[in-house]
Design a protein around this nucleic acid. Structure first.
Length: 562
DNA sequence: GCCGTTTTCGGCCCGACTGTTTTCAGTCG
């Protein structure tokens, strides 16, 4: 994200949190958080926008626009500084504690002078909190537990970790009685908690959940929350004739639900997780399937991946949503490694694995020799490999395309010479070193590679490793513009450890006409299945089949590369 | 604080569960 935008969003969020602790109107608090959220989604720098343009952003009115202007001029805004002077900033951290909200924090601070996590822990251990009216022994225990959880809690789950938790929980549910909803179903690149809708009676499910749960957070007839593999799992019980409503509700996103309910309300309809009530005649409509709710409202079905209140709702009313790409339209994987470098499959095994996956082709993109750690290929080895591939292709239903994942060196030149690159079917170029270069340098380095005639695809464009490494500091707006001009494709690296590009950049790239390439970066056969994660990201980025190289047949692909 | 073919003022999604409560506030999703 643009550095200025990041700063502005951060301060607006901060303002929202301070107001929350001050006990201000929740709608005012929400306005700040919403404005901040909108800015993180912005596809251009606030610095390049005038006051009128900023004011046009949905959810930003006159007052917040003024504050943004102040931040742009002075780095902060007066009202924030005034409030900040009256509230210890360390209180904000306490908002992260499960079961502890702004009201509790404010009371603890006012009544006992508790300012930090450490203060709170001491007070709870010393049994001093129960002295405050409305707090008891249980609350003390709950606070200590929340502090412990917060300290041990890692970042959000990768899709792989989420799959494990899902497997653990759904092992006690008969197939066909449940759906995993929430951000998992929306295809997000990382998952906060697991939400499950189940069409069984709580009396039959709750005992089974107790057996597999590390901890039962709370248990009821309509909702049960447990912790499993260290992660929170929320389960909602529903009747079959209301299943669609519950699934819609639990899939979210929150913003999407709010907007949809607002729209329903403006038409005299009350929408909740049990159905739709017509307020004029009091009639309650129930929906076994999600599709029926959209139809009832006169809308096109909105796929879970784009339910974010980012324009999809009005398009659904006009019946003009994009036809999101699906797995069956993918003709091949455009990023794999073989045993010639650091992969585990021989070329022949790779071809067989591709055929088993139903692919017409696979791009073998082993590393170039400049990257010592991954047993990279020299030009000579690469030419040997091309020979073997030609031989294997004669008898394989799945063709191996010759290629490489060549290093983008620190000056933007490539780790292999043009004389060999020009003979390959497709060239993927990626940054694997010099992550610390400053923003402008690394951006220009990337653009040099993008404009190199031999480069067809930029691999994992931001370099992030989920939960491990931030992306390098790169100006993706410039990168995407350059890719559009040079007609170079950007990769959606489908490895669940990367998912790079992420959805917002994908949508931006697509809007600018940049072609995308999904590649799993597979090093063994199992990892070819990661393609599904890449498709989720592509769908979240509103992509259709025509936005991809992977949906082309071999001839069209070669034509693109030439 | 935002927003507007029901409103420039008065709305702002809706419901589940817990604790410490005698009817509800706080938190969460």
């Amino acid at each position: 994200m643009d550095e200025t935008n990041r700063r502005v969003a951060e301060l607006l969020h901060f303002m929202g949190q301070l107001l929350e602790i001050r006990g201000e109107d929740t709608f005012k608090v929400r306005a700040y958080h919403r404005a901040a959220e909108q800015i993180t989604r912005l596809n251009r720098s606030l610095r390049s926008m005038n006051g009128e343009e900023i004011r046009q952003i949905e959810g930003i009115g006159e007052r917040i626009a003024q504050k943004i202007q102040e931040i742009l001029d002075k780095g902060t805004f007066q009202e924030l500084e005034t409030i900040r002077a009256g509230i210890p900033a360390t209180l904000i951290e306490l908002l992260n504690l499960e079961g502890v909200g702004p009201k509790t924090i404010a009371r603890l601070w006012r009544a006992m002078g508790i300012q930090s996590l450490e203060d709170l822990e001491r007070a709870a251990r010393g049994h001093r909190i129960r002295a405050i009216k409305g707090f008891g022994e249980r609350k003390e225990q709950e606070i200590l537990h929340a502090i412990d959880l917060y300290r041990r809690q890692g970042s959000r789950m990768t899709r792989l970790q989420a799959d494990q938790v899902v497997q653990c929980v759904t092992a006690v549910l008969p197939l066909g009685t449940y759906d995993v909803a929430g951000s998992y179903r929306r295809g997000k690149s990382t998952i906060g908690d697991i939400d499950i809708v189940v069409a069984l009676s709580p009396s039959s499910v709750n005992p089974r959940l107790r057996e597999i749960a590390q901890e039962v957070i709370d248990e009821g007839d309509r909702r049960t929350s447990i912790r499993c593999e260290g992660q929170r799992v929320d389960m909602r019980f529903t009747k079959e004739n209301e299943y669609g409503s519950m699934l819609l509700y639990l899939t979210g996103s929150k913003e999407f639900n709010i907007r949809l309910r607002e729209i329903a309300l403006s038409r005299g309809l009350k929408l909740n997780e049990y159905g739709i009530e017509d307020r004029r005649d009091g009639k309650l409509h129930t929906f076994p399937r999600e599709e029926e709710i959209f139809t009832f409202l006169g809308m096109e079905y909105i796929p879970p991946e784009i339910r974010e209140d980012q324009g999809e709702i009005s398009l659904a009313f006009q019946h003009s949503l994009p036809q999101l790409v699906s797995q069956t339209e993918i003709k091949g994987d455009l990023h794999t490694h073989s045993s010639w470098s650091d992969g585990h499959l021989t070329l022949e095994e790779l071809a067989n694995a591709g055929a088993a996956a139903g692919y017409l082709y696979l791009l073998c993109s082993d590393h170039s020799a400049s990257l010592g750690i991954a047993h990279g290929l020299t030009e000579e080895k690469l030419r040997d490999q091309m020979g073997e591939i030609e031989w294997i292709n004669r008898n394989s239903p799945c063709q191996i395309l010759t290629g490489t994942e060549v290093d983008i060196l620190t000056d933007g030149t490539l780790g292999l010479s043009g004389s060999v690159l020009k003979d390959l079917d497709l060239v993927v170029a990626s940054i694997h070193s010099g992550f610390k270069q400053e923003r402008d340098a690394i951006t220009r380095r990337m653009i040099t590679a993008i404009t190199n005639d031999h480069v067809d695809i930029i691999g994992h464009p931001t370099g992030r490793l989920l939960g491990e490494r931030e992306s390098y500091d790169i100006d993706m707006i410039r990168v995407i513009d350059a890719a559009a001009d040079a007609r170079t494709a950007l990769e959606i690296n489908a490895s669940p450890h990367r998912l790079d590009l992420d959805d917002l950049h994908v949508r931006e790239a697509r809007n600018k006409g940049v072609k995308l390439a999904i590649g799993t970066d597979a090093h063994d056969e199992k990892e070819l299945s990661y393609i599904k994660y890449g498709i989720m990201i592509a769908r979240r980025g509103w992509c259709e089949a025509r936005d991809f190289l992977n949906t082309m047949d071999e001839d069209a692909l070669r034509k693109f590369a030439s």
